[in-house]
Design a protein around this nucleic acid. Structure first.
Length: 205
DNA sequence: TGCCAGGCCCTCTTTAGGGCCTT
């Protein structure tokens, strides 16, 4: 069965194009319904963290100053992930930081991102909202560690991805939900999930 | 110092605008 890499960044802000940098990254590799491997590291990009971010994440300037250089961490995590398809919660955010940090070390992304938030909007349309914390509670998944730390958020996002794939397998009698189907689901109109899966099945999975 | 995006969804829509979601 296919392996997926569920990723989460903590950063100094929302906008890599305006100088914001990654401060922590975590990746969960999931396969056959389980987390089978993981990567986590703080990283020192040589930038200051403001008080708002420290209060949100618990990550301080001292913690980042003591961490390994961002360039070394990014090389390690890029090797760890390889060409494994990526998933993140609100993937446009993590994709922009993944691409920006890879670009700084002269690398380019080798795979597509799928977005657990867009998939959850289609699979769990009745959830109160589609924040990661709300979905973890709504689906009855375990709360692990502190929200807004990379390893905890990546692990909870990984459990959410596994839950969403289980829901899809049950609802549509699928043996597996490959990344290509997740990518297709996240782009389908919100209330056409069944038509999307049936079309994918007819195409020959 | 405060601000900055982008793809999606909904509706008081489609010649648009605002909210969601991520740090």
């Amino acid at each position: 069965m296919e392996t997926l890499a569920v990723i989460d960044f903590e950063t100094t802000g929302l906008y890599p194009q305006y100088g914001d940098r990654a401060t922590e990254i975590a990746v969960m590799l999931v396969r056959n319904g389980h987390i089978v491997d993981r990567f986590q590291s703080l990283m020192n990009a040589g930038v200051r963290i403001n008080g708002f971010i420290t209060s949100l994440t618990g990550i301080t300037n001292d913690m980042v100053r003591a961490a390994r250089p961002a360039s070394r961490v990014m090389r390690e995590v890029a090797d760890f992930v390889g060409a494994t398809p990526l998933v993140a919660h609100n993937a446009t955010f993590d994709r922009r930081f993944w691409d920006a940090e890879l670009d700084r070390i002269g690398c380019t992304r080798r795979q597509d991102f799928a977005c657990s938030m867009l998939i959850a909007r289609r699979v769990l349309p009745d959830a109160p909202d589609h924040k990661l914390s709300t979905l973890v509670s709504f689906a009855g998944l375990p709360v692990i560690g502190d929200y807004h730390r990379a390893e905890a958020d990546a692990e909870m996002a990984a459990h959410l991805v596994l839950y969403l794939t289980e829901q899809l397998m049950e609802r549509f009698h699928l043996n597996e939900v490959p990344h290509a189907l997740l990518a297709r689901i996240q782009k389908t109109p919100k209330y056409q999930l069944q038509r999307c899966v049936e079309g994918y099945r007819r195409a020959g999975i």
